[in-house]
Design a protein around this nucleic acid. Structure first.
Length: 658
DNA sequence: TGCGGCGGCGCC
DNA sequence: AAAGGGCGCCGCCGCA
């Protein structure tokens, strides 16, 4: 069966980054400028709109043969909405498409075609010409006209053909997607095509409130600082604050990034400074505290998402489509979210979103009615701005502490058996941990002790030490000094020998794999293999991941890290150091993602996922049935982990929420 | 003017 | 020896 390699260049009056690929492809002004294509290893050919549409391509579409494109969703949508109707060509099925960017990410390479080349060491020079051509030819100029400059067009045609050659070379040089990966990719594209409905009137109202709030706060800050600061979010603000703090307060601003001391005004710093301000105004003057408070109001709001929602929503049916990127989390294969980030929506949800919405649409003041800042109110309306269609509801399920279950299971250690049994028995795992830590019966464990158990479980599983523990503790309001934290970490490690042994075995396995290319080494439930270039590991699901371009030096293993983008003047792609903490975490997140993939294959009408959460839109009267059925699917482990204890939490919602 | 670096944010 | 990591988007600002 032959493969068609394809790449489009287009032009449109629709703003692609602003409105998204789905609106772009359906916009009346969107046209194809050219198509570069090739069958198998044949010469790349060029089609121009003045030519008759190539017969072989149309036949290929019709026959349902494979079509490969880089970021294939774009080419698929242009094919469906522009090319097929305009040139009377049969629509290729969704399943015909094979995305070579998804293939790159599945091999832990970067997704961008240009970066793949840089990543693989085929020259680090960045090419700006392609971007220039797009700006010249694909976007109308300031007078609203398109350029038809023949020389630039000719250059663009060459770029388009070159992209097909590059994509083909890269795709053939890499491990191919397995059938299972490819069909999971198609499933994700169906979720993308379905989209999720946005309450556009609410989003627009939120934007109005946010704009007014921003103006008010910035005026206030200008007053306080005598005009020194016009924007609260400017780095100038940090310096202004820094210059006015006492010596003790100054210490609170220091954060360490990669071992280097830096000054910060992030949320933790601001919280600490504001706490100090209450007692020691000589350390943190009132004016500084006021500015910090203003920053908190504006910075923490993430209300920009409302604008994004409204812009990306389909102009006709208000659904945001294409928000999920298959295998976006290259290191683990998790989904990532693009355009509208649906996987980091503030959890805090208004108590009565419908009432707040009514107030907002009527332009009523928000603060007096609710007693918190406008941006806080708006933040609580982010999730509720996603809604089911009329007559539908959301069925929302998430796995209960999935990583805390998977990690011990993955260790394959007999010492983890008791912990897994506790999960299977439905015990409160945090109480169980605290009971062991404090030599106290489970029935006697108080809230504070349970919190220590919880933070230990969340922070310690991946080899984290005092810093990890303290950071996690802060999130849960647990205050401990470093000595106490160290003792707690040590206690957890002593009580969870399965983990300590697992870390050690993993480290030994990947190190031996690096020393012995071509040989397999198993630790826990994963197997490492170094092929001389990449350090591969096989998950229990049989899915493979790798640490690309791994190298073993005297001081350990490093690998090229796709998620760290190379800077323009970098000579080499940035590399990360592999240590057991990263290795076991990658394994666990990847295995969790395998569970998600397995579940999604069996569930219809999914509109959102967030790593351990699945949101389904269905008819209201079917909700209970769907919930029950989905719960069954999510609690039934796939064959490769049939003894893994699973549990879910579930809700039926008329608006998205916590 | 556009781009990229930086320092923020949010979630799992 | 020690080590929290996985993501993407936003706004500001310096640079070319």
């Amino acid at each position: 069966m032959s493969i068609l390699w394809i790449d489009y260049e287009t032009r449109s009056r629709c703003d692609l980054p602003l409105s998204g690929a789905y609106n772009y492809a359906q916009h009346a002004s969107t046209d194809a400028l050219c198509i570069a294509y090739a069958f198998d290893d044949e010469e790349v050919q060029l089609w121009l709109p003045t030519d008759p549409f190539p017969y072989e391509v149309a036949e290929h579409f019709k026959a349902g043969h494979q079509i490969r494109a880089h970021n294939a969703a774009f080419d698929r949508l242009i094919t469906w909405y522009v090319v097929c109707p305009q040139y009377n060509v049969p629509e290729p099925a969704l399943e015909s498409w094979y995305c070579t960017a998804a293939q790159a990410r599945a091999n832990c390479f970067p997704g961008s075609l240009e970066d793949v080349g840089r990543f693989a060491g085929m020259g680090m020079k960045k090419d700006f010409r392609g971007g220039y051509l797009i700006r010249q030819l694909s976007i109308p100029n300031s007078e609203g006209k398109f350029s038809n400059d023949p020389e630039l067009l000719a250059e663009m045609y060459d770029y388009c053909k070159q992209d097909v050659r590059a994509m083909r070379a890269v795709s053939l040089a890499m491990r191919q997607l397995t059938d299972e990966e490819l069909s999971d990719y198609h499933l994700n594209e169906k979720v993308n095509d379905r989209g999720v409905l946005v309450d556009v009137p609410l989003a627009l109202a939120a934007k109005r409130y946010a704009d007014i709030e921003l103006k008010e706060v910035e005026t206030l800050v200008q007053d306080i600082t005598d005009g020194a600061i016009t924007s609260v979010r400017s780095p100038k603000m940090r310096k202004w604050v820094q210059a006015r703090l006492g010596p003790e307060a100054l210490k609170l601003m220091t954060v360490y990034i990669g071992g280097e001391a830096k000054q910060s005004v992030d949320k933790t710093v601001r919280t600490n400074l504001l706490a100090m301000a209450e007692e020691y105004p000589d350390e943190v003057p009132y004016s500084v505290a006021d500015v910090l408070q203003c920053a908190t109001d504006i910075w923490a709001s993430s209300v920009a998402k409302f604008t994004r929602m409204a812009n990306l929503a389909d102009v006709e049916d208000h659904r945001v489509r294409g928000a999920f990127m298959f295998n976006g989390g290259g290191a683990t294969g998790r989904l990532s979210s693009i355009g509208l980030q649906l996987q980091n929506m503030a959890r805090k949800t208004a108590d009565d979103p419908v009432a707040v919405r009514e107030a907002m649409l009527s332009n009523l003041p928000l603060v007096p009615a609710h007693g918190i800042s406008v941006s806080e109110v708006l933040k609580g309306m982010l999730r509720p701005a996603l809604i089911p269609a009329e007559g539908n509801v959301f069925v929302v399920l998430d796995w209960a502490s999935i990583e805390a279950r998977l990690n011990p299971w993955l260790s394959n250690s007999p010492l983890a058996a008791e912990l897994l049994e506790a999960f299977a028995a439905g015990k409160d795992i945090y109480v169980r941990e605290a009971s062991k830590m404090f030599f106290t019966a489970e029935s006697e464990i108080n809230k504070g002790q349970r919190q220590v158990g919880k933070v230990s479980i969340l922070a310690c599983g991946y080899g984290g030490g005092v810093k990890a523990f303290s950071a996690m503790g802060r999130l849960y309001g647990l205050v401990m000094d470093d000595t106490q934290s160290q003792i707690t970490v040590n206690t957890w490690r002593r009580l969870n020998q399965w983990a300590v042994q697992y870390w050690y075995e993993i480290e030994e396995a990947y190190t031996r794999a690096m020393r012995n290319p071509g040989y397999e080494f198993t630790a826990g439930r994963v197997t490492y293999l170094y092929d001389g270039v990449h350090l591969w590991y096989m998950l229990p699901s049989r899915r493979a991941l790798c640490y690309p371009f791994a190298k073993l030096d005297d001081d350990g293993i490093t690998y090229a890290k796709a998620a760290w983008k190379a800077k323009s003047d970098d000579k080499e792609w940035p590399r990360a150091r592999l240590w057991h903490g990263i290795a076991v975490e990658n394994i666990c997140q990847a295995a969790a993602n395998d569970l998600l993939r397995n579940a999604l294959r069996q569930i219809d009408n999914v509109v959102l996922t967030a790593h351990d959460e699945i949101v389904i839109e269905c008819k209201e009267k079917e909700a209970e049935k769907v919930l029950h059925r989905t719960n069954q699917i999510m609690c039934t482990p796939p064959p490769w982990c049939s003894d893994l204890p699973l549990a879910t939490e579930s809700k039926i919602m008329s608006r998205y929420g916590k």
